[in-house]
Simulated assay, not measured.
Amino acid sequence: MTESGSGLFPQTGLEAQRHAPATLRNRDAIAAVLQDILPEQGTILEIASGTGEHAVYFGQKFPGITIQPSDPDPANCRSIRAWTKREAMTNILPPLPLDALSENWDVSAPAAILCINMIHISPWEATIGLFEKAKQLLQPGAPLFLYGPYFRADVPPAQGNLDFERSLKSRNLQWGIRDVADMDALATKTEFSQHDLIEMPANNISLIYRKL
């Protein structure tokens, strides 16, 4: 069954905290991939941080790095601050209200960019914006990490992904599971190359691109 990044529920404790059930299911698998691609030190920019649970968990797993979370939703930014405060995190910066569709991001050059479960619940233009901004910000060799469901021409789609695709389209015709070939083509246009494709639980994939 494909995960959805949109299931948010109130969290007991601090009023602003939100909880995305998928986080608990995928965070360890994602951290295992990040362990091999993130630098030991530096600032990591997370796009579409959502509730902030991933940022807090990765900050705990990788104490040598500084995480810059971001999200265009003010409620999510409040949740990120609440989780950061609850866990007394010192290596997580205050969230930025970044939107992949915005022309400019007011952020310093990061050592890596992470984007989890955003590509399929946003218009294609947001993915273009993400790659274009990553091109401007990342140094050669730095990783752009994407996680979520994707279609591939050489792999039969899982029924869970087909069902999820129909659900996404019923909610917004601009949303949908993207094809890896389209992601790779966009990467080439924006001076990235696919470094790795890693199978993940629940019909998801980790796509790792590196700046040329």
Rank of each mutant, 00 (worst) to 15 (best):
L93F: 04
R152W: 07
T23R: 15
P63L: 09
P10Q: 15
W175H: 07
P74W: 09
A55I: 04
S6F: 06
N91P: 10
A31C: 04
S122N: 15
G5Q: 08
G176D: 02
E132N: 08
G141I: 06
K211D: 02
I67N: 10
Q174E: 12
S193L: 13
I37R: 00
T2G: 06
T23D: 14
T190D: 02
A187D: 03
A82F: 06
Q174K: 14
K85H: 13
S167F: 04
C77G: 12
L168E: 05
M89F: 14
L98E: 01
E165D: 05
E3Q: 13
Q136F: 09
I80D: 09
I198H: 02
R171N: 15
E15T: 13
A20G: 08
L168H: 05
T90S: 13
R78A: 14
D71W: 09
S122W: 10
G148Q: 08
E199T: 09
G59H: 03
S70G: 10
S206W: 11
M183L: 14
L98P: 01
Q159M: 09
T127W: 10
A22M: 07
P157Q: 13
G59P: 12
K169W: 02
G129I: 00
P149H: 03
A88H: 15
K211N: 03
E103S: 07
I47V: 13
A20D: 04
N104W: 05
Q159T: 11
D154I: 02
P21E: 06
W105D: 02
L114G: 00
S4K: 00
I37N: 01
F164H: 01
G7R: 15
I205Q: 11
K85D: 12
D99S: 07
P95D: 00
A142C: 11
F58L: 10
I113E: 03
S170V: 01
S170H: 02
L168W: 03
C77P: 13
S170Y: 01
